[in-house]
Every structure is written in C-alpha cells, then in structure tokens.
Design a protein around this nucleic acid. Structure first.
Length: 591
RNA sequence: GGUCUGGUAGUUCAGUUUGGUUAGAAUGCCGGCCUGUCACGCCGGAGGUCGCGGGUUCAAGUCCCGUCCAGACCGCCA
C-alpha cells in the first residue's frame, strides 16, 4: 500500500496514528540537527520531521532529498510544538520512521512553490509541472465542479447528453474548418465540427426534445487570449419551445452555477436588451453593464457651428466620465493616444469638462458657445466635475471606438470589479450581415436561424433589416453564449439559402441531409451554446482561457509540450495520397 | 496579412534613453555551519553565445538592417 492518507487530510484528531503518505518533496528545511520536509500531493501539504537524535541515519537520508522527488514515508502523527496557522495541516507533523524514495527528479526549471516563477513559454513546455501548482490546480478543480453542476442541472430539467461525431463534413459558412484526410476515400476529407449544430437539429427531428452535450469544438482561425483552436461548449437544443422558454431555462443554468459553485445568489431576471440598443448605447453587442457611462449621440447638436470635423462626420457621440473633470493634460493626452492607436483608429478626441461654477470648458471652445456646450452636458446629464469625451466619424467605427474608450475608462476608474457579475441577454440580432469584400450577405448567427415573422417580408426587399430570433448571453462584457430559434420549415430554409446566395444545387450538396431530415416532420426547435472555457475563466477571475484548460495551445496554435503541429512521415503521406507543396512558403520545414 | 510589447545567469528582472573598466540584483543551485523551521538563518562558491545573422564604430547588451521566438491586439472567429 502506497498511502493510508493524503497529504491534505491529517489533523489534530489523528494524533498518534501510524500513517503512510506518498507525495512530492516540495521543499526541505535543513537545520542541522533536524530536517523538515514539506510533502505535497493534490490535496495539500504535510510536514515531515527528521531528527538526528531520534534517527540519525534516516535524517541524513532526508537531507539528500531534492525538490520534486517522489517519496513514500511511514510515521506517526504528532502535535507540533510550533504550529503553522497558514495551512490546514499546520497543527500536526509526521515523525518519520521509514523513508522510501519512489523516484528521483531532475531539478525543475522553475520552482513549483511560487506562482510568479516561470514565463509563459517555460510553463507551457513543462505544463505537467505548472499543473502541480496551486493556481492551475484550483482552476482544474473549478472546471470539474462546473461541468458536474452543469450535468446535474441539465439532468434535473430532463435533458439527456448525447454525443455527436467529430469526423464530419466541411461546410462553406462560418469559420475555417480543421480538415482530416480520409485514407479509405483518397482525395476526400472529413472536417472537425465547429459545433454540433446540424446534428443537434437532427436530434430534434429524431424526437430527442431536450438534448445537451459538453463537447469539444474546433475552429481554424487566428487565436486570442480567449480563443483556442479547440474549445469546449455546453451545447443545448430543445423542441416545442418559445424563445422565452429557452432563455428562462438557461438563465436557470447560469443561476445554478453561480449558486452552487460560487455561492452567489442572482434573484432578479437577467436584463434583456435589443441588439440595436446595445449598439446605440454601448457601441458593442456585448456591453459590460457593471457600470453606466452610456454613449450619447450628439450628431444633431454639433452640426452647423463651423467645426469641420463634426460638420462632416456621419456620427458624433461621446461618453461622460463622472468626476474626471480634473484630468490633467497628460491624462487627456493618454486617452487621445489610446483612441488613436491603429487598433482603435480614431483621428482625435474632443473633450469638455464641467467646471465647479457650472460652465463648460472644451477643447473646441473656438467653435461652440457656452449655450452649445450646455446642450451637450444636458444630453450627458453631466454634473460639476465631469468630463465629456467625444469622437466623430463613420457611425459604426465611431461607436466601436467609443466602446473601447468606455471600457478603458471603466478599467481606469476601477469600475470593472471581477467579483461582481452582471448578466445580460442581448436579443433581436440582425439575421444577416453584409460583407463588402465578397459583396453578399452572410448569416450573422448561422444559416439555420429563423427570421422574426413580422420582418419576414423584408427578406427579399431589405435583407439587412431583418431581425432574427437570436440571442446572446453576455456577462461583464464577455460573450458567454449564443443561440437562436431555428428554421424548421424546408421552404423557409431554402429561402434563407437563397438570400445567402446559395444555388439550390449548392444547398443540396452542403446541407442536403438536413433538408432531407426536415421533410419528415421537423418540430419547432431552438437552442443555445455556451463557451465553457470562457465561463470557467470568468468564474476564476481570469482574462485568458488558457489557464482553465489543462493542455492549451499557444497563440499560433502550437502545443509546445508535445511539439505539434509537426511533419508526418512519407509513408503516411503516401497512404493518404497527399503531396506537400511548400513552394511559396517562406518558412521551410526543418526535417 | 497587419500593429505593438518583450527576448540579458536555471528562473524573475535591472542595465539599452546618452555606445566606453571585469554585465548586476533577487531567487534557485552547490559546499559549510546551524535542534523547531515553515519565504528558516548565517558564511562561501559556481553559474552569461546579452535570441540569431549582418552592419556602423577605435569600441555594441546598448545604435541601424534583417530574421526567429513569445505575448497582446486589429483583420479573422456563422
């Protein structure tokens, strides 16, 4: 037997027990006459003590133990004379009688104790060492609990978990697919699913009216801190439900997770906001509602006063930062620099402050009278000591720049508290999105999303104005999930494909299986999918999803621990009838 | 495809703005001392291709060009 207890469980009530522990040497403190060893496993740390007076041979052996050696010990639980209040096992220690080295360890490249040690690259290469540390361990356990509570809730609501295939068919819409060559059908390829979308709809046709799955999805797009090439969704679909019933069901899931995992009660219903209101008031389809600072449209107030920038702008708008009227020139320059970064792309920033005597001073006083400026502060409902920040330009770009500025100010003012969670349903998304490059409409959500019945008539006249029965769940400015009521009618689906520019033949080739299924009694249905990694990272208070994934990939999609992607052998290529052509590739393959 | 930031001891970083003696600190590591430590303490020691290549210069970690790697972001992600 390797152990009778874990390194985290022994307490004062276990005094005088003979125990066997196994674990890793975290650290040793050699005081000459005696040596202390911190023995660590997943559950905690227990102090071992060796004494020259009691057993000099064993004590000498203990002094030779290096970091991360794997050892098994036998000994007696005793009360410490000096207790350590910082750890749960701090009242006791083990007087060791037998020491068995199960495995030696090379000196690790970073110490397991401190979480500041080791840069990203090293931590990724030695992920198994990083996973031994407290922060990642905490994240893995949190993730496990959230998955467990998700299953518990879904089961309680009558959902069943059904697996769907990973080797599926490549489709033209949406993200780039990861491709898997078929050996048995040379020249043909599987694709890995971007989501189980079509399968869950087919499950509805099959009558499994409440489906869910915690499932891996794959998208071959460029990565970010919150985007991995493979990621996990809580994927759900229901039949015979209205949009409201879906929102209520999954509001329940989110509330259950907050309650059971974080002990947070959310009593109120989640706020619902239309896509249009979100864009108008926050410049984003995922507004962070932990603070106000709404965007106000000033276009009508600023025109015709001789200020060319505003006169010629399609849109002029701004935000009002409460109490920031005392910002120094330097701080204002910083904000100007912020909005002028290429990623934000604003040309400049106009500011106006409300002084203590109630008058408004601005950077454009030359063009605007006191009365003019008064109308601005009225629109912002600005008070003494407030700072108005104004951008102008093309409508959409200006709104998104104002969104970035609003978030930046929220950050600077400490309004984005990681321990407050404000959920929001954004509803009534547009059905279609115009793409200037390819000169056609794309489905904003996906091609199976149903238009709002009252907007249906516009599908052929002004497709861009058609709203969809589509919704996103946003928490603290993070898009946590999204879904829609689907089209369950074959004719409408064909109409939709037509609006997307598919010929009947293309639609049949790509989605024929779904259209076929819809001919055999498809029920009305809809669903939602949540980004599980994002949800876990939100609960963990992290900005990146990498550290809630045991083995993530880096920002160019590499796993540096196993060193992949990597070349495959000539035989493998031959078997797959695949030829590599790197002629126009700058980088050359190493081997 | 683009923008920005970084790469110096095992590790985390300073030094680069303004080129100039032998490139420093902390931590880790090794050796010695130490019987109540728990960030143990004290003494001593080892440890560097300043990412790589080229250039400017009497002289380059420092300036210039190129390149690789990592991270953040824009495009992209239905």
């Amino acid at each position: 037997m390797y152990r009778t207890h874990s390194c985290g469980e022994l307490r004062i009530k276990d005094l005088n027990k003979e125990v066997i522990l196994s674990g890793w040497v975290q650290q040793s403190r050699d005081l000459g006459g005696m040596t202390f060893i911190d023995l660590r496993d997943r559950y905690g740390i227990t102090q071992l003590v060796f004494n020259m007076d009691v057993n000099s041979g064993l004590c000498l052996e203990a002094r030779e133990l290096g970091r991360e050696y794997v050892v098994q010990i036998k000994g007696k639980v005793t009360e410490r004379s000096n207790k350590n209040k910082n750890i749960p096992t701090g009242d006791i220690e083990i007087i060791v009688s037998d020491l068995n080295i199960l495995n030696r360890s090379d000196l690790p490249p970073f110490t397991i104790i401190t979480d500041t040690d080791g840069g990203d690259e090293l931590r990724m290469k030695y992920r198994y060492l990083d996973l031994r540390r407290e922060p990642l361990k905490r994240n893995m356990i949190l993730r496990h609990r959230m998955a467990k509570e998700t299953r518990k809730y879904m089961d309680s609501q009558g959902f069943i978990e059904i697996e769907t295939p990973f080797l599926i068919k490549s489709t033209p819409e949406g993200a780039r697919d990861f491709i898997v060559p078929s050996r048995m059908s040379p020249g043909e390829f599987y694709a890995l699913p971007q989501s189980p979308q079509t399968f869950k709809q087919i499950l509805m046709v099959a009558g499994y009216d409440k489906y869910y799955q915690i499932v891996r999805c794959f998208r071959d797009e460029d990565l970010r801190a919150d985007r991995q090439p493979e990621f996990t969704q809580i994927d759900c679909e229901m039949s015979f439900v209205t949009q409201d019933e879906i929102l209520n069901t999954f509001e329940g899931l989110i509330k259950h997770l907050f309650k059971s995992v974080k002990g947070i009660d959310i009593h109120d219903s989640f706020e619902r906001m239309s896509y249009k209101d979100a864009m108008d008031n926050y410049g984003s389809d995922k507004p962070d509602l932990r603070f106000g600072m709404q965007i106000k449209n000033l276009t009508d107030l600023v025109k015709g006063k001789g200020f060319g920038i505003f006169d010629n702008a399609e849109y002029t708008g701004g935000i009002c930062a409460k109490g920031c009227g005392d910002y120094s020139r330097k701080q204002l320059d910083e904000l100007t620099g912020f909005v002028r970064r290429p990623q934000i792309g604003a040309k400049g920033l106009v500011y106006a402050r409300v002084l203590e005597n109630g008058t408004v001073r601005s950077s454009v006083d030359k063009f605007y009278s006191a009365q003019d400026l008064g109308t601005w502060s009225e629109r912002f409902n600005a008070a003494k000591g407030d700072l108005m920040l104004i951008l102008a330009g093309e409508r959409y770009q200006t709104l998104s720049a104002l969104n970035e500025l609003r978030l930046e100010l929220g950050k600077r003012l400490g309004l984005r508290d990681k321990n407050r969670f404000i959920p929001l349903w954004v509803v009534d998304f547009p059905l279609l999105e115009w793409d200037d490059e390819t000169k056609r409409y794309y489905a904003m959500h996906h091609p199976f999303t149903s238009p709002k019945p009252e907007d249906m008539a516009m599908l052929e006249t002004s497709p861009g104005d058609v709203r969809a029965n589509a919704y996103d769940l946003v928490i603290n400015g993070i898009e946590i999930g999204g879904g829609s009521i689907r089209i369950h009618n074959k004719d409408l689906q064909q109409k939709m494909f037509k609006a997307l520019g598919f010929t009947e033949k293309e639609a049949q080739h790509q989605f024929g299986f779904l259209m076929d299924a819809f001919r055999y009694g498809a029920p009305p249905h809809g669903g939602i999918a949540f980004g599980f990694d994002r949800l876990v990272s939100l609960f963990a208070g992290l900005d990146s999803i990498r550290d809630v994934i045991a083995f993530p990939k880096n920002n160019v999609g590499k796993d540096v621990m196993i060193d992949t992607p990597s070349a495959i052998s000539e035989e493998q290529l031959k078997e797959l009838k695949i030829q590599i052509n790197l002629q126009n590739q700058k980088k050359t393959r190493e081997s």
